[in-house]
Computed example of a mutant assay.
Amino acid sequence: MKICFIMYPWERVDPDSDSTLRLIHEAILRGHTVAITSTHNLTVRNNVTGSFCDVIVQKSKVSNNFKTFYNTIEFRRSQLPLSGFDAILMRDNPPLDNLAINFLDSVRSDTFIMNDIDGLRLANNKLYTASFVDLAHEFIPVTHVSKNRDYLERMFFESDSDKMILKPLTGYGGRGVIVLEKSAKHSFRSLLDFYIGGNNKESSRENYVILQEYVSGAEDGDVRILILNGEPIGAMRRIPAEGDVRSNVHAGGTVVKHTLTKHDKQLCKEIGPKLVRDGIYFTGIDVIGGKLIEVNVLSPGGITRINKLNRTRLQELVIDFVESVVNSKELAIRRKNEFRQAIEDANLG
């Protein structure tokens, strides 16, 4: 199988914790041809969408030490047609490069893309959680999204809670997440001006922000659940650093083992079918107090830490899934060709 990873720069990979490196390593172990590229290397040549790729040179022995594997890997640069790959795994960091996604429109019928490009368009920002129907707010917190200051101010003061969460719509990694308390109401307008930006006259230059119900238990951290083809495959609890509301490890949080609760499993069961319908085959969801806070679809992380906490290898499950999809597509093509040949033979008499 031939796999292309569209990802962040190779030099930014941390071999001790990087999830994408685990997926690449697993694919190489299985003898697959693996290439990596980035969105800025995408090209069109003679109406064929391709990319300047770094193809990993196959070796007789693959080190099981990820740091050694990363430091000794060899690449061969080549401009390659993307439709020649059996699978493309999108592992770029947010925010979504919409122009790069448009390049992939021309190869989607030939190549399995994970996650699907339409799914990425739908779910690449925090608005996606609002698309899940949960009228009782059992799984989805009350959320307001706007760039209208008056509206957001009204929602804040009308809230029954003494505090709410404010964050940018397009942020990631815990950046810009703050807790607002009613006692600090005199600062609220100033915070909106900072987050929304612009000048109140040119709304196109202003930023959308999220004002969200403060979920009880947020101070104790969140749960990252990795979901593959609609089913949970692993989880961990992330605990924020002292004095910080953000649980993200990059923001100073720590991780501990987490066993999925009955409510966690029900949440996954509620959202799983829609994720699959939308082409979101591999995602990391963030849950606080049993409620879905975010759906991470571009380069969901957590494989390495969940593996260490549970002595498992989640990358095996992910590559298993990619292989099964590709094999199913190849089987369908063979059957189609056999049927076409049968019709041709009948026509020849």
Rank of each mutant, 00 (worst) to 15 (best):
I117F: 06
R175P: 09
I271C: 02
E181G: 10
V295Y: 05
M155A: 15
N310M: 09
F339L: 11
V48D: 01
R205P: 01
D18W: 11
V48A: 06
V322G: 05
R121Y: 15
T33C: 11
Q266E: 06
A27S: 03
V318R: 04
C53P: 00
F188C: 14
L317W: 01
S83G: 01
F85C: 05
Q58V: 12
V256N: 13
L180I: 05
I210N: 04
R22D: 00
T261I: 02
E138M: 14
L226V: 08
N93C: 09
D118A: 09
A27Y: 02
G176W: 03
L275A: 07
D92F: 11
G176D: 10
D134L: 13
V276G: 09
K2P: 00
K308M: 08
V13N: 04
T312S: 02
G284V: 08
I288S: 02
N71W: 11
H32G: 01
P95V: 09
D110P: 00
S106Q: 07
A27P: 00
K2E: 00
C268G: 05
I88C: 02
E26M: 11
V55R: 14
D14K: 14
P240C: 08
D345K: 07
T68G: 01
L135S: 05
S203W: 12
F132W: 00
M155E: 10
A27N: 01
